[in-house]
Design a protein around this nucleic acid. Structure first.
Length: 269
DNA sequence: ATGGTCCCCTGACCGC
DNA sequence: TGCGGTCAGGGGACCA
């Protein structure tokens, strides 16, 4: 999946195409995603105008008068704008038509979700989420405070969406490298000073990825239909055995919380 | 509350 | 070229 920068890039790409536009038709070919797509509720959108597209964590929110369409891209989802007559390809599960344009959802692995919320503020998936990493509430003091007495590895801690949203597996490794913190270190045993550095690194890595239009590894296709081009900027992710850009030592790979983790033993303590 | 594990699904890739 | 095994960026549901 798209990490947060890809989701934000998608949002920005879609917004001008769908904001203020009226939905003329919705086609659901495959309702079996992570959760079953609630077809009846979603059909309420027919004839309605999408007022704006916002984002909370990695969920995209399409706002209309009767409610909000929530879309999560999972690991392999993408959204793109097409002309309505374009025939669907395999894994193109849902079309939302706006006259002669079509917003098409594709998701080969079907880990994504399309849901309906009348009150997104209190939706069970959104309510428990921590702050946005690019918001003012998120800083080193916040991470320090929330981490006291916690034994979980700091990488898991920053990937926990109840703590802070939007830090996926790639950028967790990248931010910890930038901050010089060993990803295996217990979250509760890291100083305020180091958390300030980590919070800054998280902001920076996400911001620069958004500016670059999002990282692309395998599955992401931008809303323009063109793949991104940022993966070569990664310092440690996917670089096991290659030289650390800072000290030249070999990048290590380990598994933390069932996920691949890359770091430099010399630079990260 | 916290921490750890499991899994939804398909496709890409690697070694034989 | 085919085949089987392994792995993948998310993250909710469970369990102890």
């Amino acid at each position: 999946m798209p990490e947060l920068p890809e989701v934000e890039t998608t949002r920005r790409g879609l917004e001008p195409w769908v904001s203020g536009k009226k939905i003329t038709r919705i086609t659901i070919r495959q309702a079996s995603l992570r959760w079953s797509v609630p077809e009846k509720k979603i059909q309420l959108l027919r004839g309605q105008v999408i007022h704006r597209v916002s984002r909370r964590a990695k969920y995209l929110l399409f706002h209309a008068d009767p409610g909000v369409l929530l879309i999560h891209l999972g690991m392999s989802g993408s959204l793109r704008i097409l002309e309505t007559h374009q025939p669907p390809q395999p894994h193109d599960h849902v079309d939302i038509h706006f006259g002669n344009l079509c917003l098409r959802y594709r998701d080969p692995r079907r880990f994504g979700a399309i849901l309906w919320a009348t009150d997104p503020q209190h939706h069970p998936l959104l309510e428990p989420l921590g702050p946005e990493p690019l918001s003012e509430q998120f800083d080193g003091a916040f991470l320090f405070r929330r981490s006291r007495k916690r034994k979980v590895a700091v990488k898991n801690f920053i990937m926990n969406s109840r703590i802070v949203v939007g830090v996926g597996n790639i950028y967790a490794s990248e931010a910890l490298f930038m901050a010089g913190i060993d990803p295996r270190r217990p979250a509760g045993r890291i100083s305020l000073k180091r958390y300030m550095k980590l919070a800054g690194a998280i902001r920076q890595v996400l911001t620069s990825a958004i500016e670059a239009g999002g990282t692309t590894l395998r599955d992401f296709v931008g809303s323009s239909g063109n793949p991104g081009y940022f993966s070569q900027e990664l310092n440690v992710y996917g670089r096991e055995g290659q030289p650390c850009p800072r000290c030249g030592g070999a990048i290590q790979k380990t598994i933390i919380g069932q996920r691949s983790t890359f770091f430099c033993r010399m630079c990260q303590r």
